[in-house]
Design a protein around this nucleic acid. Structure first.
Lengths: 182, 182
DNA sequence: ACGATAACTGTCCGATCGGTCAGGACTGAC
DNA sequence: GTCAGTCCTGACCGATCGGACAGTTATCGT
């Protein structure tokens, strides 16, 4: 049942991306992918040198797109630089949504599982950050701040002294929320 | 060698937090923790019902702190609500830095490993978002935007239609960067 | 001193997973 | 037809991991 010119390869990548995005990379076994595709596990390893190579091939387009963006803005400066970078970065993340999701699935699973109910609390936090507003723009901004603070706090300490880090995180977050200081 | 009142429990939690923060939850085996503490793997399972229970106990204080924060701002509204929530959330993430890091370690490891060099590109992106500035405030804001867009793009589609999501992500990001539109 | 309880450990087990390998099946060139 | 090369598979392997359990050691109340 040898398929033409390894159409199987494409199916493997597609199944892998979908399963990775749902159960995470580590949470998806080669057998899971093989079952989803409808082939044997050995077949995966015929087309790809290893499990990680599948992930690599899945993430490479996004990496290349990012590299292209950086090249494009390399000559810019000032306002144009920031503007083009932001727009380009946003478009890029939207285009590679599933790829980004797969990176996060491990966190989601870890937070949801067990006795913890972090997700419920995250909803409450989102609500408060949005000022109890249900307007999509406010909700999006709330998500932005949630993610921004979360990731920035995990940053290397050397980025900025703790006091600067704290003050600037607060100011930047309030700006993102379009909050006019009272 | 029965230690007094299970001082071992505390050491286990401390070692686990440190190892989880470095190698991730899945990347740290019970044996790793046991070796680090200097006891047997069976001893871990005497004090904790399972590996996940260790994680639970590690994450519970942060969860409780978040719940407390939400309680505190429950009665507020308007500007005060947003302000207090942001400050409280920032302080909270800073206080539980290591706990948050452990959630991210899997991503970091996945991005660094293999042939991908995402981290290098992330540096370039950070540079551009900061407008090539090396000032800590600008760097922090750049980190904020990097994380904000990254996480928001992984959000459920139902938060906002794609067009709204895109437009608002861009506007919010530019505000966070204190960018005055040209 | 001694029994009871808590603290701790060595050893074993089942399951899972990534990966290897020899060989079968199909295809196209000659 | 046949030969070579590509595609694919079942069976197997070694390693790892979380966990179970019986048994040992230390602690403490009496």
């Amino acid at each position: 049942m040898a398929r033409s010119a390894s159409a199987l390869r494409g199916q493997i990548l597609e199944s892998a991306l979908r399963l990775f995005a749902v159960h995470g990379f580590r949470g998806t076994s080669l057998q899971d992918i093989a079952s989803d595709v409808g082939c044997s596990k050995a077949s995966l390893l015929y087309h790809f040198a290893g499990k990680e190579k599948i992930l690599t091939e899945l993430l490479t387009p996004a990496q290349d797109a990012l590299a292209t963006l950086l090249d494009r803005v390399a000559g810019l400066e000032g306002g144009r630089l920031v503007e083009e970078t932001v727009v380009g970065y946003v478009d890029l993340t939207l285009r590679f949504r599933r790829e980004i999701r797969l990176l996060f699935e491990d966190i989601t699973e870890m937070s949801c599982h067990q006795d913890l109910n972090v997700m419920e609390l995250a909803d409450g936090l989102l609500d408060a950050l949005a000022g109890r507003s249900q307007h999509p723009p406010a909700r999006v901004a709330a998500w932005m701040v949630l993610g921004a603070v979360f990731i920035t706090s995990a940053t290397d300490d050397e980025v900025a002294p703790d006091e600067v880090l704290r003050a600037e995180m607060i100011r930047s977050a309030l700006r993102a929320l379009d909050h006019t200081p009272s």
